[in-house]
Design a protein around this nucleic acid. Structure first.
Lengths: 155, 155
DNA sequence: ATCTCAAGTCAACATAGTTGACATGAGGCG
DNA sequence: CGCCTCATGTCAACTATGTTGACTTGAGAT
């Protein structure tokens, strides 16, 4: 875990701008950090981190997901999934059980405790977004979504 | 270096939405990835990665920066800076020299080759932004900037 | 000469990922 | 029944990026 205090990133506005879009580029960096900072601090207090949150986030939105599907969605190897997943199972933040028919796969679900931690961590992120949207109003929010969709679809 | 091919992240739009702002939350994730994907691929081809780019980016905008100041801006320890920085010096992407008076600090500058790589990597990121802004027009772009500033100032 | 301070270096560790190899256990099928 | 497939689980070795702590070096200041 990085030190959660003090600027662990580019110190904003201290750099000369070489190109017109440098400001936007830095805003993306700070935006990502700004959204995740409090959530990461909360997760660290729980002894968890970003990969655990990603697992909890996906399982919350796809109850009874199999491990193979989870691996595919997260885009990591099963070996990389193994450690954080086992920690979450040990902590009883999620459960795994065999499917009724399809005994080959294990189905994952959040426990009540897991749901609570997922919700609180994601709430920190959503709260940052909520405040930002409130500050700029509906048209600004629509613009933000339009730009982000254009960027996301760039893949 | 992660495999640069195939979805190394949440597979977009495949998850149920538990909260209204889940879409925005995921857009931030994909937006960050979308902006950095091609730049990271370019850097990987040069045998470099994100930390090297961050160093190049800052030095480009603060020529003659001392190592201590660079550490502060990057928000990492001098030991963590050491390896990527030495690689960049070995590759002659940047130079370090003692100050005329202040002999205590070393001053960093990009070489022509360093400037070129910094510019190309950052160009990939700016290009993604440029296209997204073009697609939504000036008012959308203004909205995006407003939201991102609100989020960035959340720190 | 000694003190301070920026920089450099070494060791040990944590986290998050990778490949490769192999084990286990359930279902499908001849 | 025996064998094959397939999802899962696990072990080992490695890379990259970061952390602390301890120590050295070299230049300037007193």
């Amino acid at each position: 875990m990085a030190k959660t205090s003090q600027a662990a990133g580019l110190h904003r506005a201290s750099l000369a701008k070489l190109h017109e879009l440098d400001t936007a580029l830095e805003l993306m960096y700070y935006g990502w950090r700004g959204m995740t900072l409090e959530a990461d601090a909360y997760l660290a207090k729980q002894g968890l981190s970003r990969p655990h949150h990603r697992i909890l986030y996906v399982v919350a939105r796809r109850p009874d997901i199999a491990i193979g599907a989870l691996i595919e969605i997260l885009g990591i190897s099963k070996q990389a999934l193994n450690r954080p997943l086992n920690l979450l199972l040990e902590r009883k933040l999620l459960t795994s059980k065999r499917a009724p028919e399809q005994h080959r796969s294990k189905l994952l679900r959040l426990t009540e405790a897991g749901r609570r931690i997922e919700r609180r961590a994601s709430d920190h992120e959503r709260q940052v977004l909520r405040e930002a949207f409130a500050r700029v109003g509906a048209s600004g929010a629509a613009g933000w979504i339009g730009v982000m969709e254009a960027i996301a679809d760039n893949n």
